[in-house]
Amino acid sequence: MSTLAAGLPARTTRQVRLATREPILLRAGVAIVAIGFLMLFLIVPLVAIFVEALSSGLGVYLAALREPDARSAIRLTLLTAAIAVPLNMVFGVAAAWAVTRFDFRGKGILITLIDMPFAVSPVISGLIYVLLFGLHGWLGPWLKAQDIQIIFAVPGIVLATIFVTFPFVARELIPLMQSQGAEEEESALVLGASGWQTFLRVTLPNIKWALLYGVILCNARAMGEFGAVSVVSGHIRGLTNTVPLHVEILYNEYNFAAAFAVASILTLLALLTLVARSLVEWKSRRAVPKHATLPEGEP
């Protein structure tokens, strides 16, 4: 740090150090502004959710979670995530493999298209399925003749959820697999491994943390999606209500304690997601140097 400053007698080291960091009072002020802003916008709302949820006592809290409509909403949300997350996980791995291991024309466009769902408002994500499968949509009359209902039913909710969570896994994997390169896989193949063996024994261990993080993010969004699902659900209690929609109904009925009780499970899920994110980041940061410097130590 001081090598440069030491050669220049015009400014003492102390003066240089003063000019490369803020004065102590300013530092304290800046830190207080930053932390104060985060407190006001993030921590206070977080605390408020749990305080409101428990404001009428633990009995009301548990009753709100045990009530049949809440249970059916939880079941539907779990079902939706159980379908949407694995599908998008398989897609993410396939897309990352295609994009990072091969060169082909239109790759840039493909990556942009994969990102598209993030650029679309959730409400529009629901609307496009209504225009496609709704009663007045393209395939609506045909679907009605076959007695298949997609909009205002579970399939529509699942489709809208798949759409909004579409890029999560691919987005985590593509930059990582790009930077890792294909040398290890090529060596495995040269040494006689089959394609699937290479994928399972070489690629998968290398990408597991990013894959896990992508899946966690995808799951959090799948379980918490509101706008898109709201458009296609039809809000039929006990049938097409997911947990976030159930929160909305309870809130609009002025049943605040119950609304926040149900919201608190979603909040716990969000907090778990943040913890998982920190763990995965920590794990992958530890994994990288080990992997890079000690290949012979690994069994």
């Binding site: 379980m223 509101f226 976030p244 929160v247 919201a263 969000a270 907090l271 994110r277």
Partner: peptide
Amino acid sequence: ALPTAVAGI
């Protein structure tokens, strides 16, 4: 990470 509806209420 927080569902938007929860943030809203």
